[in-house]
Structure formats: C-alpha cells, structure tokens
Simulated assay, not measured.
Amino acid sequence: MTMSYLLVDGENIDATLGNSILGRRPHPDERPRWDRVLTFTEDTWGQPAKGLFFLNASNGLPMTFVQALRALGYTPVPLSGTPDQSVVDMAIQQMLEAIRERDDDVMLVSHDGDFLDSVTPLLDGERRVGLIAFAEFRNSGFHSLISRGMEFFDLEHDTLAFNTELPRMRIIPIEEFDPAQFL
C-alpha cells in the first residue's frame, strides 16, 4: 500500500510567518497546528501519511518542541552541520531523491525554490506530489509544475492549521469572491 510522506521545512514556514506575514516572531497561538496539517494530508489523499519534521539542531535540540511533535504523530528529524550548511534543505532534498525510488506520494511544506530540482522528477504521472505553503510566498518556479500534476494547498485556508486568521493579502479566485466580505 502506498502512503504519503509529509516533509515539513519548519524553518522556512516559521521565517515566512514571522518575517513576511506578521513582521515579528510569531506567538505560540499564531503558529500552525501541525496535527491538522498531518490530518489534512491523510484526508486529502485518502491514505496514511508519515510526517517528517526537519529541524536544524546545530545549536541544540528543542526538546519540548520535539516531544510535542512526537505526540502529534510526527517523526522529528534533528540535523546539525556547519553554519554555512543549510542542513534542513540538504536533508529534504535527499529525502525527495530517496522517495523517487518508491511508489509513495509526497507532500512538501515549504516555500523554498531550492526544492524545485528534487521535486520535478517526482512528477512522473504515477504519484501525487503536493506543496503546502502560503500561496503568495511560494517560489514562483513551482507554478510551472501545475501542468505536470503538482497540487497546491494553502497552509492557512486549505489545511485550516491556524486558530486565528492571519493578516495576509490573499489573492481571491473569482469563484470564491464574496462581496459581503468587503461591505
């Protein structure tokens, strides 16, 4: 039986949330509810999902967060390296390459264009490949992958991973436009 691998680039999501959306470090209640993202992946593709949460632990392991991730059903992947290494990106790229050898589906949670070269070969017409991100901040290189079968999901609006509405400027598809929201 195939399964879905949910690969979370936590640093990328946290940086986008803090720097680009909130303009400050997110408060705990403004962070994604990661259990909802895992459930969304399972429900959307109708199969079990293995959540892998990649962490840069070069300066130590955030044990409270790691324990919380485990309790939510994720496998934390703590990594270390030199300051000039993007260990999370390196590990996710290696994981995407390893998944190529399997029949499983993959859902990536990131905005990072560094994954384009690793994601593209997965779009073989045999597996499902998805990206969960804030739509307005995902790397524009991902857009060309729609025609090859890549699916996109908004981290806030599709997964419902947040308890509060984020102050985002969302591009509204015309079929979702509701004039009452602006009256």
Rank of each mutant, 00 (worst) to 15 (best):
T64Q: 14
Q67T: 13
L79N: 06
D84C: 04
F65G: 05
T75F: 10
G51N: 05
L52R: 10
S58A: 08
N56V: 06
A57L: 04
F53G: 00
P62V: 03
D84M: 08
L55Y: 03
F53N: 00
L72N: 10
L55G: 01
N59G: 09
F53V: 00
A49N: 09
Y74Q: 08
P76S: 09
K50D: 10
P83Q: 07
A71L: 13
L72I: 02
Q85F: 06
P78Q: 06
G73F: 04
P62W: 02
L61R: 13
P78A: 08
L69A: 01
P62L: 07
K50A: 14
L69I: 02
D84W: 12
K50P: 03
G51E: 05
F54V: 00
N56I: 04
P62A: 07
G73V: 11
G51T: 05
F65D: 12
V66N: 00
N56H: 11
L72A: 13
L79H: 02
A68N: 14
S58G: 04
G60M: 05
T82S: 13
F54M: 00
P76T: 06
S58C: 10
M63I: 10
Q85E: 15
G73E: 12
N56R: 02
S58T: 09
V77A: 06
A49Q: 09
F53Y: 15
A68I: 07
V66Q: 02
P76Q: 06
G60A: 04
A71I: 08
V77P: 01
S80C: 13
F65H: 13
T82Y: 09
F53A: 00
N56K: 02
T64M: 11
T75Q: 14
G81Y: 05
V77Y: 02
A49Y: 04
L52P: 02
P83F: 06
V66H: 00
L69C: 03
K50L: 15
Y74H: 04
V77T: 10
T75V: 14
L61H: 11
Q85N: 07
F54G: 00
A68Q: 15
M63D: 14
G73T: 07
A57T: 03
D84S: 12
F53T: 00
P78T: 10
L79G: 08
R70T: 13
P62G: 05
Y74S: 06
T75G: 05
S58W: 04
V66R: 01
P83H: 03
M63S: 12
Y74G: 03
Q85T: 11
A49V: 07
V77H: 01
T75L: 14
L69Q: 06
A68R: 14
P62F: 04
F53P: 01
L79A: 05
A71C: 10
F65W: 11
Y74D: 02
F65E: 12
L72S: 10
G73Q: 10
Q85Y: 08
P78Y: 01
Q85I: 12
S58V: 04
D84Y: 09
S80D: 15
R70L: 13
L72F: 09
